[in-house]
Simulated scan of single mutants.
Amino acid sequence: MRRRILDAAALSLAENGYQATTLRGIADVAGLKAGSIYYHFASKEQITVEILNEGVEYVSDAVSRAVDALPPDAEGRTVLKAAIDAHLSALSAHKAYTRASIRCFSMVPEDIREQTIETRRDFDGIWLDTLKRARSHGSLTGHTDLREVHRIILGALNWTIEKRGGPSTRDHALSETLLSLLAS
């Protein structure tokens, strides 16, 4: 039941945004009475925190697993490709959660952002470590500001969630374009 509520809330947040999402609307999508949500969650805010964190964790875990699965001496381009492809795949596989997280983070009250910031910092750390690894294995120039590269990559990849149909196999072209711009 808890997962059913979260799934319904993720869909609502992804489609309608934070302000337009209500507990009554979540209950309708989940096929429940609004009051039964309180058995599992104290508030819309608690639900939102979980969804925003899960959306980031899905992608973070996928990127981490993909990069960790590579041999330690993998070329930098291979490391970047694995991370980019895993990111795109996770966006697509968990679309309601990832889209809700991307779309709503800037809309939510500060106290909700504060409860999700550690998860986002951990995710940023995974990407920054990936970029450092790629640099040390022959990609990215030594003077490249990795934080800026990180922002560019995330902006490009996360944009795909807003395209009609979301991330798809057509995003292979985006992956290749990013690699050609970033990796030597």
Rank of each mutant, 00 (worst) to 15 (best):
I117R: 14
E15F: 03
V149P: 02
K44D: 10
L11S: 15
G55A: 05
D7F: 03
P72G: 14
L178W: 05
V79G: 01
T21L: 12
A93W: 02
D73L: 12
A8W: 00
K44I: 02
A86Y: 01
F123C: 02
R151H: 09
K95H: 11
W127R: 05
H87G: 07
A134Q: 06
V149E: 01
K33H: 12
R147G: 14
C104T: 15
V49I: 13
T144Y: 06
Q19P: 02
R151Q: 10
A96C: 08
R121T: 04
M1F: 05
S12H: 04
V49R: 13
A86G: 03
A156E: 04
I153P: 10
C104A: 14
L6V: 11
E162D: 13
T119D: 03
H94N: 15
I117N: 13
S184N: 10
S12G: 09
R65P: 03
H40R: 09
L154K: 04
T21A: 14
A66S: 05
L88V: 10
A74Q: 08
R164C: 06
P72K: 05
A14D: 15
K81R: 11
S168H: 13
Y58Q: 06
Y39W: 05
A86R: 01
L6G: 09
K81C: 03
G138A: 14
S12Y: 01
V108Y: 07
R133H: 15
H40Y: 15
L131S: 02
S36C: 05
Y97V: 10
F123P: 01
E57F: 02
S60D: 06
I51S: 01
D129R: 08
T78Y: 02
V63L: 04
H150I: 00
K132G: 10
Y39N: 00
T98R: 08
L23R: 10
